[in-house]
Every structure is written in structure tokens, then in C-alpha cells.
Design a protein around this nucleic acid. Structure first.
Lengths: 228, 228
DNA sequence: GCAATGCTTCGGTTACGATCGAAGTATGAA
DNA sequence: TTCATACTTCGATCGTAACCGAAGCATTGC
């Protein structure tokens, strides 16, 4: 007994419904204030404050003071991956929420996962990139090809810039709704930013879902075709 | 709020120290009885029984009756991966146990992770396989090469048999002690079995650690050299 | 300066769940 | 049959942590 790292601590941190809701909301990548997170968790600000303090002490959250606000974000991408992987696991076991809710279909279609595109569209994009030879896939690993680099340049993404960052360029992330991989890493982030910049899609206020405009939808589907 | 799968439930399941200890013990791959698990968790059998019932209801455990014993195991490999990934995360945040303990060094050197080799030796083995060209690595993904297949045949592992199983042949698994990848999947399992069969190493009674014999140690290090 | 907003800290209540003793069920051994 | 072992269920206790009202800081705006 007492072997290895202490998983009970972080399990307990995630194990409270209010905290889990806050973490899930922060997986949206946006920095949120304590008051907003209290709303997400369905609790008062006082209670939220103690929860947030615990999460920060546990290394899951980071906070940034700005004026009289305090913006909370996930500490880093590793936390986002942990949350998303737990979601994948929970979805696989049928630990779904009681009511699917009206927002559910939009979430399944396209949502943000920390800073990249997830859901049906995220999976489709990666599939298409692999099919077109832009990305090589070996097992769970992904690597950008020369062809991919050229193609991306054409739509306005400079891979050279991305390579300079310490963060891995390509990374696969298991999608909880599709149960298949989508593209994470700095390239995944750059692609989503690109779509948002072009006005193809926009983020919604209080949800993780991403709404494509009709025109953006058309462009996206044309850019990432599936031959089936 | 209330978006996506319910991670709080499984978080809470893992969040109790007694349950976390039991799960960690079961990551050793061995089926354990309720009484043994009670010892691991440091609680009475009654308490353990209720914990085990909850874990089973949550889909984390499976049980098998045999005579008057009940053997518990992790429900499947996905659970093992979740536990190990949480250990990796916890180790990265410094959520280590209070006292490193005497068994710690042995665990770090070589231990079992569900059914394959982990720890320093596990990482070394994968590094060596990649360096020798037996395994291709792209990002986090791993694939056996033709050369690798031949080499393995020579030490008595028939890859053809392994391929027929539904389980992936190669899979990378993040090692919590080394913070680097080691080899999982059916090939990882086959390799460990091979070492045990040859008498190079043996499993210990109540721990996850794996003890190499002096001769086994020599053979292992010779088979998987590191040029550095 | 004063009021308003955003958040934290304090204090006290409450509820849930972990815990164990004791009793109950099942299997095996004598 | 009787006893022993392995485990579960019941009942009751107890501790902890989630929770909120109220008060206390800090920052901004007027």
C-alpha cells in the first residue's frame, strides 16, 4: 500500500460536482471570474471562492488579478488533457448527465477543447488532414508532412512560427463525444484561431460550443472534405 | 453549466484515499480478494466491501466469484490507463506521498503497469527498441517495424499471434516515475511475460514492483542497450 | 472623500459519507 | 451437522467538508 503518487487528492478535487463544473467550463479555454464560475457551479460566490482556492492550491488552476476582477484559468494544458480524458472515460462508461439538454447537439457538432476544435468537426478536420496526406498518423502519434506545411501556408498559417514554441505542434486528443481523436497542440490552436479570425465561426458566451456561420460552414466542409 | 459527461462521479470514486489505494494496487494487474484490498486500503473488510461495491457500480471494477472468495480486478485496460495517467499528473504536480518509503526505489526501477513493464527499465526498453529501429515513433504513436518483428521472433515472441487480438499492438503509456513513455499494448504485455517465463524476473507478493535476478538483469541490459 | 463592485475570510449549520461493530448469508471443511 | 472462512448488509457514530450569511478587504468610479 501507499505506492506511488497521490491520486486521491486530485480525484477528490475533481470529485465535487461544483468544482467539476467549474473545471469543465474552464476547459473552454476562456479565463473566467470567480462570480462567473460561481454561476457555473450553481453556488454562491463565497463557496466558489473556497473551491477556487483549493483548486489553485492543488495546482489545477492559475489566477490573474486584473483590476478588481480575478480571472481563473486552468493551470496548463496538462490539466485540460486530464479533464478531457476523464470526460472520455466517463462518457464511455455511460456516466452521462441526467438530461442531455438542448445545448448538447451544438456541443457535439463543434466545441472548444482548451484552445482547439473538438466535436464532430474537430474529428472530421483531422480525418481529412490525414486522408489528404497533410498529417502522418502512426498509432496515436501525429506529425505534419511537408505537403501539410505548404497547404497550411496557403490558408494563412505559418508553421515556422509555431515550431519555435516549446509546445508540441501536433498532438492527438481523445474526443469524448466522438470517441475518436481530434487535433490538439499548437497547430490545432492555430487552425481554430484561423477560423475565428476569418469569421467562419464564433465562440458563444457561456458555453463551450462553437457556432459556424452558414458561409463558414460551407468553407469548412469544402476545405476538409471526407471521401466516403 | 452541466455540459458534457459527469466527471465528478468518477473523480469522487477515485477521490477517497482507501479507494485510491485499492485501485493503485489493482493496477498491478493481479486479481485481489476483498480482504487483501481491505489491507491495502488500511480499513476493515466491511468498509472495503462497501467501497468495492461502489467502484463496481461505477464501472471501474469487475469481480469474479471463485469458491468463497471474490476476486476483484480493474474493469478493463481503460481504467488502468486512467489511473496511470492520473498518477503521472499527480507526480508532475508534486502530489507525492508524504514518505517516499523503502519500496520506492524498487518501484522506480521496475514495476508492473496493468500487464506490462514500467519504471526505469520500461522506459529504457522502449528507448532501446526505438534506437535500434525496431519501433517507429511519431509523436506519441508507436509502430512495430519489420526489423522489430524479426528481432522479437528471435527472442521467442510471435507477433502474428498478437496481431490477431483486438487490442492494439503498440501503445505508449506515460510513466509516472520517469515522466517519459514506456511500451504498453499487447506487445508490452508479451515482452514482460517473456521475461517472467525466462526467469529473468519475478513479481513480488504485495507490491507492484518487479525484481530482476542478477542474471536476468544482465541479460535485460544486454538485450536493450543504450548508447549514450 | 464616499459608494459600488468583486472577492475573501469568518462562523455556524447541515448533510453526506466513511467508518466499524454486530448480525446475516454463502461456501467450504470436518 | 457443526464449525470456520469470506464476504455483505444493517445500524449507529462521527468527522469532515460543502454551504451560506455576514463582515472584512481591495479596487474602481464618482
Amino acid at each position: 500500500m501507499k505506492e506511488g503518487p497521490d491520486i486521491a487528492q486530485i480525484g477528490a478535487l475533481i470529485g465535487d460536482p461544483a468544482r467539476a463544473n467549474m473545471l469543465a467550463a474552464l476547459t473552454g479555454g476562456r479565463a473566467l471570474t470567480a462570480t462567473e464560475l460561481a454561476g457555473v457551479g450553481g453556488i454562491t460566490v463565497q463557496t466558489a471562492s473556497t473551491h477556487l482556492a483549493k483548486l489553485e492550491a492543488g495546482g489545477l488552476l492559475a489566477q490573474r488579478k486584473q483590476g478588481r476582477h480575478r480571472y481563473f484559468t486552468l493551470a496548463d494544458e496538462a490539466v485540460a488533457r486530464l479533464i478531457e480524458s476523464m470526460m472520455g472515460f466517463a462518457a464511455g462508461r455511460g456516466h452521462l448527465r441526467h438530461q442531455p439538454g438542448p445545448k448538447e447537439p451544438a456541443l457535439r457538432k463543434a466545441r472548444i477543447c482548451y484552445d482547439h476544435l473538438a466535436g464532430d468537426y474537430g474529428v472530421r478536420m483531422l480525418d481529412s488532414l490525414i486522408a489528404s496526406g497533410s498529417i502522418d498518423a502512426v498509432g496515436d502519434g501525429l506529425a505534419l508532412t511537408e505537403k501539410g506545411e505548404n497547404d497550411l501556408q496557403r490558408i494563412g498559417i505559418d508553421v515556422g512560427d509555431l515550431r519555435s514554441s516549446r509546445r508540441p505542434l501536433c498532438r492527438s486528443c481523445l474526443d469524448w463525444s466522438e470517441r475518436r481523436a481530434h487535433l490538439a497542440g499548437s497547430l490545432g490552436k492555430a487552425l481554430l484561431s484561423n477560423f475565428l479570425d476569418k469569421g467562419w465561426a464564433r465562440r458563444t458566451a457561456e458555453s463551450r460550443s462553437i457556432l459556424f456561420t452558414p458561409e463558414g460552414d460551407r468553407q469548412f466542409l469544402m476545405l476538409f472534405p471526407i471521401d466516403a
